[in-house]
């Protein structure tokens, strides 16, 4: 479609949005142009989800939506009314790390740590999907999460260790 100037819509006021955020109901006043990622980071105080590209090209913003891994930067927040969102802050059970988190530490599956929340949630999602069993499957399943530090072999090792222990 052409993008020739047409008058923009008048800014729509914020509306109430209720989500199940890391197991708790949370309500926000949200304008239409707020993405799920920006809602989490700037309004919910959950800065664990990272903005690496803001365009669906790096995976750092991965969260679980109703248990499925998805990119929060490409989702409008308002489209997720009532959804259960799990971020990295909500993954551990109390002080007990989730097995994928623990395996990432043990296998040194990160360096700078910036992509790590997205990697971990993507791994949790991929394991649940059931298609991350062999090394090659893990590599493919995790290819939507860039790691510029190049921790990929250790990420594969961490996920494989979790799978073995299951």
């Amino acid at each position: 479609m052409p993008t020739t100037e047409r008058p923009a819509a008048p800014a729509q006021p914020a509306v109430q949005l209720t989500l199940r955020l890391n197991g708790r109901e949370a309500t926000f006043a949200v304008e239409p142009d707020v993405t799920l990622l920006d809602l989490l980071r700037e309004r919910a105080g959950l800065t664990g989800s990272k903005k690496g590209c803001d365009r669906g090209q790096c995976g750092a913003c991965t969260v679980l939506v109703n248990g499925r891994r998805t990119l929060s930067c490409l989702a409008l927040a308002l489209a997720h009314a009532g959804d259960a969102i799990t971020t990295i802050e909500g993954l551990a059970a109390g002080s007990e790390l989730h097995p994928v988190q623990a395996a990432f530490v043990e296998h040194d599956a990160f360096q700078c740590g910036f992509c790590t929340p997205g990697q971990i949630l993507s791994a949790v999602g991929a394991i649940a999907e059931g298609h991350a069993r062999t090394g090659d499957e893990i590599r493919e399943a995790m290819s939507g999460n860039l790691c510029r530090c190049g921790a990929y072999p250790n990420i594969v090792a961490a996920i494989a260790a979790v799978q073995r222990a299951r």
Binding site: T3, R6, P7, A9, T35, R55, G56, L74
Partner: peptide, 19 residues
Amino acid sequence: GGTTLVDLMKADVERPRRV
């Protein structure tokens, strides 16, 4: 799914008045 639309809205390529 939003995966194309939101991407292109951020690029200012898509400028919908109503979503």
